[in-house]
Simulated scan of single mutants.
Amino acid sequence: MLKAVVFDMDDTLLSINLSAFIAVFARDEAALLADIARKSPLSMFATFGAALYALNNGERNDDDTNLAFFQKQIERRCGVPLCDPVIADVLTYYEREILPGKNDGIINARPREGAREAIDAVASRGLRCALLTNPSFSRACIECRMGWGDMLDMPFELVTTMENSTRCKPTADYYLASIAKMGLEPQEVLMVGNDPRRDFPSPDCGIQTAYVGNGTPVRATWAGSMAKFADSFNEIEERFYERREQAAAANAHASNV
Protein backbone atom coordinates (compact mmCIF):
# COMPACT_ATOMS: atom_id res chain seq x y z
CA MET A 1 0.00 0.00 0.00
CA LEU A 2 0.98 3.64 -0.35
CA LYS A 3 2.79 4.63 2.84
CA ALA A 4 4.66 7.84 2.02
CA VAL A 5 4.67 10.79 -0.35
CA VAL A 6 8.05 12.41 -0.85
CA PHE A 7 8.50 15.85 -2.39
CA ASP A 8 11.06 17.70 -4.42
CA MET A 9 11.55 21.30 -3.28
CA ASP A 10 12.63 23.77 -5.98
CA ASP A 11 9.72 24.63 -8.29
CA THR A 12 7.65 21.93 -6.60
CA LEU A 13 6.97 23.24 -3.08
CA LEU A 14 9.02 26.42 -3.61
CA SER A 15 8.74 28.81 -6.56
CA ILE A 16 12.26 30.03 -7.32
CA ASN A 17 14.59 31.09 -10.10
CA LEU A 18 16.96 28.26 -9.27
CA SER A 19 19.61 29.23 -11.80
CA ALA A 20 19.82 32.71 -10.29
CA PHE A 21 20.01 31.28 -6.77
CA ILE A 22 22.84 28.90 -7.68
CA ALA A 23 24.72 31.72 -9.41
CA VAL A 24 24.50 33.97 -6.35
CA PHE A 25 25.33 31.16 -3.94
CA ALA A 26 28.34 29.94 -5.94
CA ARG A 27 29.61 33.48 -6.54
CA ASP A 28 29.46 34.38 -2.86
CA GLU A 29 30.99 31.18 -1.54
CA ALA A 30 33.71 31.29 -4.18
CA ALA A 31 34.50 34.89 -3.19
CA LEU A 32 34.82 33.86 0.46
CA LEU A 33 37.15 30.99 -0.44
CA ALA A 34 39.17 33.25 -2.72
CA ASP A 35 39.73 35.67 0.17
CA ILE A 36 40.74 32.83 2.48
CA ALA A 37 43.14 31.28 -0.04
CA ARG A 38 44.29 34.58 -1.58
CA LYS A 39 43.29 33.39 -5.01
CA SER A 40 41.44 34.98 -7.93
CA PRO A 41 37.67 35.11 -7.33
CA LEU A 42 37.12 34.22 -11.00
CA SER A 43 39.30 31.11 -10.85
CA MET A 44 37.73 30.08 -7.55
CA PHE A 45 34.26 30.49 -9.07
CA ALA A 46 35.29 28.16 -11.89
CA THR A 47 36.66 25.68 -9.36
CA PHE A 48 33.47 25.82 -7.30
CA GLY A 49 31.32 25.23 -10.37
CA ALA A 50 33.45 22.33 -11.54
CA ALA A 51 33.18 20.68 -8.11
CA LEU A 52 29.39 21.06 -8.14
CA TYR A 53 29.27 19.55 -11.62
CA ALA A 54 31.39 16.59 -10.51
CA LEU A 55 29.05 16.06 -7.57
CA ASN A 56 25.96 15.99 -9.78
CA ASN A 57 27.15 14.08 -12.83
CA GLY A 58 26.70 10.66 -11.18
CA GLU A 59 30.07 9.22 -12.20
CA ARG A 60 31.26 8.06 -8.79
CA ASN A 61 32.30 4.78 -7.23
CA ASP A 62 33.00 5.93 -3.66
CA ASP A 63 30.95 5.76 -0.47
CA ASP A 64 31.64 9.32 0.68
CA THR A 65 28.83 11.61 1.70
CA ASN A 66 28.15 14.34 -0.84
CA LEU A 67 29.72 16.83 1.56
CA ALA A 68 32.94 14.82 1.87
CA PHE A 69 33.07 14.29 -1.90
CA PHE A 70 32.60 18.02 -2.56
CA GLN A 71 35.23 18.94 0.02
CA LYS A 72 37.73 16.59 -1.62
CA GLN A 73 36.93 18.01 -5.05
CA ILE A 74 37.61 21.57 -3.88
CA GLU A 75 40.83 20.65 -2.09
CA ARG A 76 42.10 18.63 -5.04
CA ARG A 77 41.38 21.45 -7.47
CA CYS A 78 42.67 24.45 -5.49
CA GLY A 79 44.15 23.26 -2.20
CA VAL A 80 41.51 24.81 0.09
CA PRO A 81 40.48 22.37 2.88
CA LEU A 82 36.76 22.98 3.38
CA CYS A 83 36.81 20.56 6.32
CA ASP A 84 39.03 22.96 8.28
CA PRO A 85 36.81 24.09 11.21
CA VAL A 86 37.55 27.79 10.63
CA ILE A 87 36.66 27.63 6.92
CA ALA A 88 33.60 25.49 7.66
CA ASP A 89 32.41 28.06 10.23
CA VAL A 90 32.79 30.88 7.70
CA LEU A 91 30.66 29.07 5.12
CA THR A 92 28.05 28.00 7.68
CA TYR A 93 27.77 31.59 8.96
CA TYR A 94 27.23 32.80 5.40
CA GLU A 95 24.56 30.17 4.71
CA ARG A 96 22.68 30.72 7.98
CA GLU A 97 23.03 34.47 8.48
CA ILE A 98 23.73 36.10 5.09
CA LEU A 99 22.17 33.88 2.42
CA PRO A 100 18.58 34.20 3.76
CA GLY A 101 18.77 37.92 2.96
CA LYS A 102 19.71 37.30 -0.68
CA ASN A 103 16.17 36.59 -1.88
CA ASP A 104 15.72 39.47 -4.32
CA GLY A 105 13.46 40.15 -7.28
CA ILE A 106 15.56 37.93 -9.52
CA ILE A 107 15.70 34.85 -7.29
CA ASN A 108 12.09 35.61 -6.29
CA ALA A 109 11.68 32.63 -3.98
CA ARG A 110 8.25 32.17 -2.41
CA PRO A 111 5.86 29.37 -1.41
CA ARG A 112 4.44 27.54 -4.42
CA GLU A 113 0.69 27.78 -4.80
CA GLY A 114 -0.88 24.61 -3.40
CA ALA A 115 2.26 23.45 -1.55
CA ARG A 116 0.90 23.60 1.98
CA GLU A 117 -2.42 22.15 0.88
CA ALA A 118 -0.52 19.23 -0.67
CA ILE A 119 1.34 18.52 2.56
CA ASP A 120 -1.89 18.80 4.54
CA ALA A 121 -3.64 16.38 2.15
CA VAL A 122 -0.88 13.82 2.60
CA ALA A 123 -0.78 14.21 6.40
CA SER A 124 -4.58 14.04 6.73
CA ARG A 125 -4.52 10.56 5.20
CA GLY A 126 -1.95 9.37 7.70
CA LEU A 127 0.77 9.11 5.06
CA ARG A 128 4.40 9.82 5.86
CA CYS A 129 6.24 12.70 4.25
CA ALA A 130 9.83 13.59 3.31
CA LEU A 131 11.65 16.30 1.39
CA LEU A 132 13.80 14.68 -1.29
CA THR A 133 15.46 17.80 -2.60
CA ASN A 134 18.64 17.30 -4.62
CA PRO A 135 21.36 16.94 -1.92
CA SER A 136 24.03 19.03 -3.60
CA PHE A 137 23.71 21.69 -0.87
CA SER A 138 24.37 21.72 2.87
CA ARG A 139 21.63 21.47 5.48
CA ALA A 140 22.00 25.19 6.23
CA CYS A 141 21.61 26.12 2.57
CA ILE A 142 18.58 23.88 2.12
CA GLU A 143 16.98 25.24 5.29
CA CYS A 144 17.47 28.74 3.91
CA ARG A 145 15.28 27.86 0.91
CA MET A 146 12.85 25.97 3.12
CA GLY A 147 12.43 29.21 5.08
CA TRP A 148 11.70 31.14 1.89
CA GLY A 149 9.04 28.55 1.10
CA ASP A 150 7.47 28.55 4.59
CA MET A 151 8.37 24.87 4.96
CA LEU A 152 10.31 24.75 8.20
CA ASP A 153 7.25 23.56 10.15
CA MET A 154 6.20 20.92 7.63
CA PRO A 155 6.23 17.32 8.94
CA PHE A 156 9.17 15.96 6.94
CA GLU A 157 10.67 12.82 8.47
CA LEU A 158 13.71 13.21 6.27
CA VAL A 159 15.32 16.11 4.40
CA THR A 160 18.11 15.00 2.07
CA THR A 161 21.24 17.15 2.23
CA MET A 162 24.95 17.00 1.43
CA GLU A 163 25.61 15.70 4.91
CA ASN A 164 23.28 12.69 4.88
CA SER A 165 23.38 11.57 1.22
CA THR A 166 25.96 9.79 -0.90
CA ARG A 167 24.48 10.40 -4.36
CA CYS A 168 22.41 13.04 -6.17
CA LYS A 169 19.33 12.96 -8.37
CA PRO A 170 18.35 11.27 -10.60
CA THR A 171 20.33 8.14 -9.71
CA ALA A 172 18.19 5.28 -8.44
CA ASP A 173 20.79 4.75 -5.70
CA TYR A 174 19.91 8.17 -4.25
CA TYR A 175 16.19 7.43 -4.18
CA LEU A 176 16.55 3.91 -2.83
CA ALA A 177 18.97 4.97 -0.09
CA SER A 178 16.68 7.83 0.92
CA ILE A 179 13.54 5.74 1.29
CA ALA A 180 15.53 2.95 2.96
CA LYS A 181 16.33 5.43 5.74
CA MET A 182 12.56 5.60 6.31
CA GLY A 183 12.24 1.80 6.26
CA LEU A 184 10.24 1.90 3.02
CA GLU A 185 10.17 -0.09 -0.22
CA PRO A 186 9.90 1.54 -3.68
CA GLN A 187 6.35 0.30 -4.26
CA GLU A 188 5.22 2.07 -1.07
CA VAL A 189 6.35 5.55 -2.14
CA LEU A 190 5.09 8.31 -4.42
CA MET A 191 7.57 11.00 -5.51
CA VAL A 192 6.25 14.49 -6.37
CA GLY A 193 8.42 16.68 -8.57
CA ASN A 194 8.61 19.10 -11.46
CA ASP A 195 11.85 18.14 -13.23
CA PRO A 196 11.56 15.43 -15.92
CA ARG A 197 15.32 14.81 -15.76
CA ARG A 198 15.79 14.57 -12.00
CA ASP A 199 12.49 13.63 -10.36
CA PHE A 200 12.12 10.27 -12.13
CA PRO A 201 14.70 7.80 -10.77
CA SER A 202 17.22 6.59 -13.35
CA PRO A 203 17.11 3.74 -13.99
CA ASP A 204 13.52 3.08 -13.00
CA CYS A 205 13.54 1.43 -9.57
CA GLY A 206 9.81 1.11 -8.91
CA ILE A 207 9.18 4.53 -7.36
CA GLN A 208 6.27 6.27 -9.05
CA THR A 209 6.26 10.02 -9.71
CA ALA A 210 3.44 12.57 -9.70
CA TYR A 211 4.62 15.29 -12.07
CA VAL A 212 3.89 18.97 -11.37
CA GLY A 213 5.97 20.55 -14.15
CA ASN A 214 5.29 21.41 -17.77
CA GLY A 215 4.12 18.71 -20.15
CA THR A 216 3.12 15.11 -19.44
CA PRO A 217 6.06 12.69 -19.22
CA VAL A 218 5.20 9.12 -20.20
CA ARG A 219 6.47 7.81 -16.87
CA ALA A 220 4.27 10.14 -14.80
CA THR A 221 1.60 8.43 -12.69
CA TRP A 222 -0.27 11.75 -12.63
CA ALA A 223 0.47 15.14 -14.19
CA GLY A 224 -0.99 18.48 -13.17
CA SER A 225 -0.20 21.65 -11.30
CA MET A 226 0.92 21.82 -7.68
CA ALA A 227 -2.18 23.95 -7.08
CA LYS A 228 -4.37 21.00 -8.16
CA PHE A 229 -2.45 18.28 -6.33
CA ALA A 230 -4.42 18.32 -3.06
CA ASP A 231 -7.83 18.39 -4.74
CA SER A 232 -6.74 15.59 -7.09
CA PHE A 233 -5.27 13.31 -4.44
CA ASN A 234 -8.03 10.69 -4.61
CA GLU A 235 -7.40 10.37 -8.33
CA ILE A 236 -3.64 10.28 -7.74
CA GLU A 237 -4.04 7.42 -5.25
CA GLU A 238 -6.21 5.49 -7.71
CA ARG A 239 -3.62 5.88 -10.45
CA PHE A 240 -0.87 4.89 -8.03
CA TYR A 241 -2.55 1.56 -7.30
CA GLU A 242 -3.41 0.99 -10.97
CA ARG A 243 0.24 1.48 -11.93
CA ARG A 244 1.39 -0.80 -9.14
CA GLU A 245 -0.97 -3.58 -10.26
CA GLN A 246 0.18 -3.17 -13.86
CA ALA A 247 3.82 -3.42 -12.77
CA ALA A 248 3.10 -6.51 -10.67
CA ALA A 249 1.29 -8.18 -13.58
CA ALA A 250 4.16 -7.35 -15.94
CA ASN A 251 6.69 -8.79 -13.51
CA ALA A 252 4.63 -11.95 -13.07
CA HIS A 253 4.36 -12.38 -16.83
CA ALA A 254 8.11 -11.89 -17.27
CA SER A 255 8.79 -14.51 -14.59
CA ASN A 256 6.62 -17.07 -16.42
CA VAL A 257 8.17 -16.51 -19.85
Rank of each mutant, 00 (worst) to 15 (best):
M1T: 14
K3V: 07
K3R: 11
V5A: 08
V6P: 06
F7G: 08
F7N: 12
F7R: 15
D8N: 06
M9P: 11
D11H: 07
T12H: 08
T12E: 03
L13T: 04
S15A: 12
N17C: 06
L18D: 10
S19K: 10
I22V: 08
V24G: 07
V24Y: 13
F25A: 02
F25I: 02
A26C: 03
A26R: 10
A26E: 15
R27P: 03
R27S: 12
D28L: 04
D28M: 09
D28A: 08
E29P: 02
A30C: 03
A30V: 02
L32V: 15
L32E: 13
L33Y: 03
L33K: 02
L33M: 12
A37R: 01
R38Q: 14
R38E: 05
K39N: 08
K39Q: 07
L42S: 10
L42N: 13
S43Y: 11
F45G: 13
A46E: 11
T47I: 14
A50D: 13
A50R: 14
A50I: 05
A51I: 02
A51W: 04
Y53H: 09
Y53F: 05
A54L: 07
A54F: 07
N56E: 00
N56S: 00
N57I: 04
N57G: 02
N57M: 10
N57E: 09
G58R: 01
E59D: 12
E59I: 14
D62C: 00
D62F: 00
D64A: 11
D64Y: 11
D64R: 07
T65H: 03
N66K: 01
A68M: 14
A68I: 14
A68L: 11
A68C: 06
K72E: 08
I74Y: 00
R76Y: 06
R77Y: 01
C78I: 10
C78K: 06
C78G: 03
C78W: 01
G79T: 14
V80E: 00
V80Y: 00
C83Q: 13
D84T: 04
V86D: 13
V86Y: 12
V86H: 05
V86P: 03
I87L: 05
I87G: 07
A88Y: 09
A88H: 05
D89F: 14
D89V: 04
L91E: 00
L91H: 00
L91Y: 01
Y94N: 00
E95L: 06
E95S: 14
R96H: 04
I98F: 04
L99C: 07
K102C: 13
K102E: 12
N103M: 09
D104E: 06
D104I: 05
G105A: 14
G105S: 08
G105L: 10
I106C: 15
I107M: 11
N108A: 11
N108D: 13
P111V: 09
R112T: 10
R112D: 10
E113Q: 15
E113A: 09
A115P: 08
R116A: 10
E117M: 06
E117W: 15
E117V: 13
A118Q: 08
D120L: 05
D120A: 03
D120S: 08
V122A: 02
A123E: 09
S124Y: 06
R125A: 05
G126I: 11
G126A: 05
L127E: 13
